[in-house]
Amino acid sequence: MNGTSISFRIFCDEVARYGDDVALDVIDSAPRELKERPKIVTMANLRKAAKILWQFSRRIGKADVTLIVGSHQFLLSIGSLCFLIAKLARKPCYFRSFGYLDRYYENLSLVPRWVFRHVMLNLDGLFVESRLSQDNLRPRVGEKVRAVPGYRLMPDATSDAPGDRSAPGGDLRLVFLAHVREEKGVFILLEALRTLAETHGRSVHCDIYGPILEGSRERFDLEIESTSNATYGGVLQPTKVVETLAQYDALVFPTFYAGEGHPGVLMEAMMAGIPSITTAHRSIPELVEDGVNGLLIEPGSVAELVEAIRTIDSDRKLLKELARASRRARNNYDAAKVVPHWLKLMQLSVGTGHGH
């Protein structure tokens, strides 16, 4: 599952807590599998698009509000047609985008950009994941753009202090969890680990988890075989992510992925009570403050990544302070707080006994 699918499932589960106050009727448009460079126009996709539009047309009459959640390409294509149907039916229509909608919009050619801007201007609301996207889009589409951050189902807070994983002088255990592809920084991480194995006095080991995208498989197999202090652990089930992360000293996530918004794995690291070494890329500094609940490096810099790992390995007091702050920061991304706020922005106040 990718981050958007996980977030939407959490949204549905959280809305279900309100019983009869808000009822969901979901039309599933998710692809069966994630591909690195998927083909957009295929017969299978056209058949699926026709099915989605038919279902949407039949069900919209019973809805009070329509919420379209999807990729930027989906919002521009099928999502725009759903918007048109909603407007013809005189139903409020909202879009929810994850990731980098502002950059996607700027990179469109003239005609698609005009179509997308026209749709955004006539929506009842556009929800983006980060303040960065909100600030970049507001000059174009106005105040209806609202930042609703990424979120996860946070456990009850029992303590602000994580467990003592980082004994002085002990091995430093790192973890990488993401799709295994170049843009997520996995090859930068492997190069940094090889450098540490050659030059660093103490043992640093990193376990890597996540599905390997086909375009990266051959290179990844070759590089991890030559990296003695890295191990591939396969794909984790979503229910096992937090408890697995909690076994490590820190998350390493040197992403430079163009579509990055609020990466779910950073919130999951907060849930596990471990700090993150990640990049000052796009809106990531909204989640991780350098030197407070993690360390930030420049995207693509192996040298800075090596130095950041050395820093937390040599200063275990700092490591513990970062971990405590990471655990506290999770409250900002609690679905129990974010989802009700989101519903209110759609003028669906819970406790009214209606809403569909």
Rank of each mutant, 00 (worst) to 15 (best):
F127C: 04
V128S: 12
V128F: 04
S130F: 03
S130C: 08
S130L: 11
R131D: 11
R131A: 09
L132R: 13
Q134K: 14
D135L: 09
D135N: 13
N136K: 15
N136V: 07
L137P: 06
R138T: 10
R138W: 03
R138S: 10
P139R: 04
V141M: 05
V141W: 06
G142Q: 08
G142M: 10
E143D: 15
E143P: 01
E143A: 12
K144Q: 14
K144D: 07
K144N: 10
V145I: 11
V145G: 03
R146C: 09
R146F: 03
R146K: 15
R146Q: 13
V148Q: 06
V148L: 08
P149Q: 03
P149T: 12
L153Y: 05
L153P: 04
L153C: 10
M154L: 15
M154K: 13
P155T: 12
P155K: 10
D156R: 15
A157H: 07
A157N: 10
T158E: 05
S159E: 06
D160A: 13
D160G: 13
D160P: 06
A161M: 11
P162C: 00
G163F: 02
G163W: 04
G163C: 05
R165P: 00
S166V: 03
A167L: 14
A167H: 15
A167Q: 12
P168C: 02
P168G: 01
P168D: 03
P168L: 01
G169V: 00
G170V: 02
D171V: 07
L172N: 00
L172H: 00
